[in-house]
Design a protein around this nucleic acid. Structure first.
Length: 642
RNA sequence: GGCGGCGUAGCUCAGUUGGUCAGAGCGUUCGGUUCAUACCCGAAAGGUCAAGGGUUCGAAUCCCUUCGCCGCUACCA
C-alpha cells in the first residue's frame, strides 16, 4: 500500500483579490503534492474558502446581492484562478456547503455536551471590522483593536466559549514532545511562549450577525470563525458523516501537513490542536508557517508599496516563471521581497541562461554531431564523467532532504548547482574539439550521453516546480514517459536519446530594462488594467463631528511609572484640567511638551492605562520611525478644532 | 518591559557539535571558449565576520556587556 500524504492550504477569506503573497501558500502546497505524487504517495490536496462572517454580509449588502450569490461568485473566480495556475487540488471546500455546515454543527454540539464549550457572557471590547472580541489581557485596558488598530466598542453579549485553559498543559506537552510539529523553529518558540503566558477561553459564537452556521441548540448564535473554518480540514474528508473513508485514509494516514502563513499561526498551532484534543481526534498533522512576500516598501497593500497579482505575471511571463520565482525567492523561515529587478533577473539568469540554454546547446550538439541520436554510455569514462555523475547523486540527496523539511528554496538551489556543474562539464569536455576529430567520436557520444542523462535528472527533479518546462525538456530529448519518474533516477538508465531536430528555448530572455519599467508601472497602478478601488472605508461627516477635538495646553508631564512608552500629561482644555496618557515617550522627553498647545480629543471614554487614568487622546502624526505631536501654539486652550 | 532571533565582501545571504570557515550568488575588472537564447567557463579585487571584553593552545562559531535591526508578547486611541 502506498503511503498517504494529505496537504492543505488555509481556506481563504474572500475579502480581496488574491495577490502573489496569498497565492504562495497554494503554489507551495501544489509543489509538495506533485513531489509526493512523484515519490509514489497516495496524495490528497485540499483548499477552499471561508465564506461566513459579518464582513461578507456587509459587502454583499453593498452589492445588493444575497450573501450566497456574492460568495458563489468569488468562489468561482478563485477556482478559476487555481485552474489557470494548474493547481492540482483534489477538493475545494466552502464553509457555506451543507457537507461542511452539518459537521460543524455536530462538532459544536458535541463539545457543548462535553462541557468543552460553555455559554457565558462576554463583556468586552469588540472590533466591528475584525469581528473579534478582545479580552482584557489581550487589549489591556485600551480601547482599540490589537489587530487592525481601529476603535472598538464596549459590548455585552452572550457568547459560547471554548475551554482552552483545560487543555493548556496537554498542548504544551504535545508541542514540547514533538519538536517537528511546528516549523520553522522560530514559530514554534513563539507558540510555546504564548501558551506559557496562559490561555484565555475563546469566544466561539456571535449573536451580532446571521451569515454563519447556526448553533443548533441555540439558533440565535452563529458559530464564529475558528470552529467553523478550522473544521474544514476534517469536514472535507467526511469526518462524522456516513462516508468517512477519506478521513480514515488520510487523516489517520502517514503524513498530514497544514501549510499556513505566519499570520494565522496561532489559530492552527493552538486552537486547532485543542479542538482535536477535545474531539478525541488524533493530532496527526504537522504545521508549517511560512513568511510573506513583501514589496520593497513594505507589506503588500494597495495603499503602501503596491500590489502584484499572479495573473499579471502569468500572462506576461508564464506560469513556470511565476512558480519558480515564488518557490525560489522566499527564504525558509523568513519573508521574501518581490522586486521587478529580481523577478526579471531570476528569469533571465536562472531559467533562460543557465537552465534553458543548457538544454538548448545540448540538443543542438546532439543534432549537429549525431543527427539527433545518442546511445553510448561508457562506465570507464573520464574524471569529468565521474564527477558529473557524483553531482547528480548528491543533488538527489540534497533536494530530497530539503523538500522533506519544506525548505523548497534550498531544494531548488541544489538543482541549480547541478545545472551549473553540467554547464561546466561542457567546458571541461569541449565537445566542439572532439567533433573535429573522427577518432574521438565515441568520446563525444559519451559526453553527449552524460549531458542528456544529467538533463533527465534535472527535468525529473523540476517536475513539481516547472510544469511546462520539464515536459518540454523530456520531449526535446525524446525521453519516454517511463523514464521520467523519480525512481528511474539512476545514472545510466537512459538507453537512447532521440532529440527533436530543432531545439526550442525553454524560456525567452527578457529585456531587463524594459520589463522592469513595465512591472514598476503595474505595481504603481499606472497601468489602466490594474486600476483598483481603494480598500479604505469612508467616514461620513457625522462620524467626524462626533469627535470633540480641542486645543489644550500641556501643564505638566511626567514619565509613566509603569510603562516605558507612555507619558502622563496634565492638560488644560480651557479652564478644565485633565490627565491624558499618551504613547509618545519614545519620541518626546517628559518635559519637552510643557506649555505647548496640542490637539486632543476631549470626549473619549476615559480609560485606565497601566494604572493611570487617561481622559482623552493626544493627536500626533507618525510614520515608521518618526512621530510628531500636533501643536497649535497660536490658538487658546479650549478652542475647537474641525 | 518580557521571550526569541539577527547584525559576515558594494548588494542578497550560506556558514551543523569552536581548529583549511573566511564562503556562494549577483555586481565590478580581466581572461578563455563558440555547441548555445551575446550564452557558458575561469581568474582577480572587495570583509579587523556590528563594537568591546572574557573562556580556550585556538572563536564568525561558546559566555558577558554595549549599539543597531526584526519577530512574538505586554503597554501605547
Amino acid at each position: 500500500m502506498a503511503k498517504t500524504f494529505y496537504v492543505t492550504t488555509p481556506i481563504y477569506y474572500p475579502s480581496g483579490k488574491l495577490h502573489i503573497g496569498n497565492t504562495y501558500t497554494t503554489v507551495l502546497c501544489d509543489m509538495l503534492r506533485r513531489y509526493k505524487e512523484m515519490r509514489g504517495y497516495d496524495t490528497y490536496y485540499l483548499t477552499g474558502m471561508d465564506e461566513h462572517g459579518k464582513k461578507i454580509e456587509t459587502v454583499a449588502e453593498e452589492r445588493n446581492l444575497p450573501p450566497s450569490e456574492h460568495v458563489d461568485e468569488i468562489a468561482e473566480q478563485t477556482r478559476a484562478l487555481w485552474d489557470r495556475m494548474q493547481i492540482s487540488y483534489d477538493d475545494f471546500i466552502r464553509t457555506t456547503e451543507k457537507r461542511h455546515k452539518t459537521v460543524v454543527q455536530k462538532i459544536f454540539e458535541q463539545l457543548l455536551e462535553q462541557g468543552d464549550i460553555y455559554l457565558g457572557t462576554y463583556e468586552g471590547h469588540y472590533c466591528m471590522h475584525c469581528e473579534a472580541f478582545f479580552t482584557e489581557s489581550q487589549l489591556g485596558e485600551g480601547a482599540t483593536c490589537p489587530d487592525c488598530g481601529r476603535e472598538t466598542s464596549k459590548l455585552k453579549e452572550e457568547s459560547y466559549f471554548l475551554r482552552l485553559s483545560k487543555y493548556e498543559k496537554q498542548l504544551l506537552k504535545f508541542i514540547e514532545d514533538n519538536p517537528d510539529f511546528i516549523t520553522p523553529e522560530s514559530r514554534r518558540n513563539e507558540v510555546l511562549e504564548f501558551i506559557r503566558q496562559g490561555l484565555n477561553d475563546l469566544s466561539v459564537s456571535r449573536t451580532t450577525f446571521d451569515w454563519g452556521i447556526k448553533v443548533i441548540s441555540n439558533p440565535k448564535h452563529v458559530v464564529y470563525v475558528w470552529i467553523d473554518a478550522l473544521s474544514n480540514y476534517l469536514s472535507a474528508l467526511g469526518y462524522l458523516t456516513d462516508d468517512d473513508s477519506l478521513y480514515k485514509k488520510y487523516w489517520h494516514g502517514d503524513e498530514v501537513v497544514h501549510v499556513v502563513g505566519k499570520d494565522i499561526l496561532r489559530f492552527h498551532a493552538i486552537y486547532w490542536p485543542i479542538m482535536l484534543m477535545a474531539l478525541d481526534v488524533p493530532i496527526t498533522f504537522r504545521l508549517h508557517a511560512h513568511g510573506f512576500y513583501m514589496m520593497k516598501e513594505g507589506k503588500m497593500s494597495k495603499s503602501k508599496g503596491g500590489v502584484i497579482y499572479p495573473d499579471t505575471l502569468m500572462e506576461r511571463y508564464g506560469l513556470d516563471e511565476l512558480r519558480y520565482f515564488l518557490l525560489r525567492e522566499l527564504p525558509y523561515g523568513g519573508d521574501g521581497v518581490f522586486t521587478p529587478e529580481t523577478f526579471v533577473e531570476r528569469i533571465n539568469y536562472d531559467l533562460a541562461n543557465d537552465f534553458g540554454n543548457l538544454l538548448n546547446r545540448t540538443v543542438s550538439m546532439i543534432n549537429k554531431y549525431f543527427d539527433g541520436k545518442v546511445t553510448a554510455f561508457s562506465k570507464e569514462g573520464t574524471d569529468y564523467d565521474a564527477s558529473l555523475r557524483e553531482t547528480c547523486e548528491q543533488t538527489i540527496k540534497e533536494y530530497t532532504e530539503n523538500i522533506e523539511e519544506l525548505k523548497v528554496a534550498e531544494a531548488i538551489r541544489s538543482v541549480w548547482k547541478l545545472i551549473s556543474r553540467t554547464n561546466k562539464y561542457i567546458d571541461e569536455t569541449t565537445p566542439w574539439i572532439l567533433g573535429k576529430d573522427d577518432s574521438r567520436r565515441a568520446e563525444l557520444e559519451n559526453v553527449l550521453y552524460h549531458l542528456s542523462e544529467s538533463l533527465r535528472f534535472i527535468g525529473v527533479l523540476l517536475r513539481p516546480i516547472l510544469l511546462d518546462a520539464s515536459e518540454s525538456l523530456f520531449r526535446q530529448l525524446g525521453i519516454p514517459q517511463k523514464l521520467r519518474g523519480f525512481d528511474t533516477l539512476e545514472f545510466g538508465t537512459l538507453d537512447a536519446v532521440e532529440t527533436v531536430s530543432k531545439p526550442s528555448p525553454l524560456f525567452p530572455r527578457l529585456d531587463v530594462e524594459e520589463e522592469v519599467e513595465k512591472l514598476q508601472r503595474i505595481i504603481r497602478g499606472d497601468d489602466a488594467e490594474e486600476s483598483e478601488e481603494s480598500d479604505e472605508e469612508k467616514a461620513t461627516i457625522e462620524d467626524f463631528v462626533k469627535l470633540d477635538v480641542r486645543v489644550a495646553r500641556v501643564v505638566d508631564s511626567k514619565a509613566h511609572p509603569n510603562a516605558d512608552k507612555l507619558l502622563v500629561l496634565q492638560v488644560d482644555i480651557g479652564g478644565e484640567q485633565r490627565q491624558i496618557v499618551a504613547g509618545i515617550a519614545k519620541h518626546y522627553d517628559s518635559k519637552e511638551l510643557i506649555d505647548k498647545h496640542v490637539a486632543v480629543i476631549a470626549n473619549l471614554e476615559p480609560v485606565t492605562l497601566r494604572g493611570e487614568k487617561s481622559e482623552g487622546m493626544l493627536l500626533a502624526g507618525s510614520n515608521d520611525d518618526e512621530l510628531e505631536v500636533l501643536t497649535l501654539d497660536g490658538l487658546n486652550p479650549g478652542d475647537k478644532i474641525q
